[in-house]
């Protein structure tokens, strides 16, 4: 791997952030974490980011809003988004995919789930 892929994770749960960043870091990715949408957007504006893992239920600005804000921004709209969701409703899946999310990962997920899904996403995007 020439250079580590850079991933932003936005989730209001610190333990999730801890776990996700641990697994992805161990998996060879460079991980930025944000506890809320504003921080996440700031990071994405500053850094070169390859993937966003986004929780839907966030305080103040929720996941859907974040996607809208990103779409309106020249730089951010190129970043692929995967939703981290606790909801199993197919309704959420549909909205998520229509709004431009690449994939969704349902909670609870194991380390293997997470890593293999993220790896698959990058493989898919390179193709």
């Amino acid at each position: 791997m020439s250079q580590a892929k850079r991933i932003v994770v936005i989730d209001d749960e610190e333990d999730i952030l801890d776990f996700v960043s641990r697994v992805l870091t161990d998996g060879g990715y460079k991980v930025f974490t944000a506890k809320n949408a504003e921080d996440g957007i700031e990071v994405m504006k500053k850094e070169e980011i390859d993937l966003l893992l986004l929780d839907i239920m966030l305080p103040k600005i929720d996941g859907w809003e974040v996607i809208k804000i990103m779409k309106a921004d020249e730089k951010m709209k190129k970043i692929p988004v995967a939703m981290l969701t606790a909801r199993l409703d197919s309704h959420d899946k549909i909205i998520g995919l229509r709004e431009g999310a690449v994939d969704y990962i349902c909670k609870p997920f194991t380390a293997d789930d997470l890593l293999s899904r993220v790896n698959d996403m990058f493989k898919y995007m390179e193709e």
Binding site: F19, D26, M57, K107, P108, T110
Partner: peptide, 25 residues
């Protein structure tokens, strides 16, 4: 919806780490 989120989030973190630890990571 809230319950689902509230219960799954702690489970994700716990289960995730237990699984990770069990695999010797």
């Amino acid at each position: 919806a809230n319950l689902s989120h509230e219960l799954r989030t702690p489970l994700t973190a716990s289960l995730g780490y237990v699984d990770y630890m069990e695999k010797g990571k």
